[in-house]
């Protein structure tokens, strides 16, 4: 078992680094002023990034579209930090081959 995360047969495998980069890229689309270097990956995300509920919905949508993962509202509580989001998405991607990243 490597850190590689299964992806669709035609897509390149999604590494943990790529996953993290995608998580941050989606955040930056909503919060352009975000400086990833300043973001503590293990600290509460929404306190660091200043995301209101509309911003948060757009971030969720961004992750959904990037990774093809459904993120039910009931799971929002698990998405407390960047590390937690990466772990959550990796878990959702692992059991079955991911759907295409593009939508």
């Amino acid at each position: 078992m490597t850190t590689d995360i299964p992806a669709t047969p035609n897509a390149r495998p999604l590494t943990a680094d790529a996953l993290r980069a995608g998580v941050l890229a989606a955040l930056r689309e909503v919060a352009p002023e975000l400086d990833s270097a300043q973001l503590a990956p293990d600290r509460p995300l929404r306190r660091q990034v200043d995301l209101d509920s509309m911003d948060w919905l757009r971030v969720i949508l961004g992750w959904h579209e990037r990774f093809g993962v459904d993120i039910p509202e009931a799971d929002y509580g698990q998405l407390v930090s960047v590390d937690a989001v990466v772990g959550y998405l990796a878990g959702r991607l692992r059991p079955e081959p991911a759907r295409p990243v593009v939508t």
Binding site: M54, L57, E73, A74
Partner: peptide
Amino acid sequence: LRAHNEAVPVNQRLLPA
């Protein structure tokens, strides 16, 4: 709202606002 949002795709979710 919760029931509605569970039944629709993420891009059709509603906010309390």
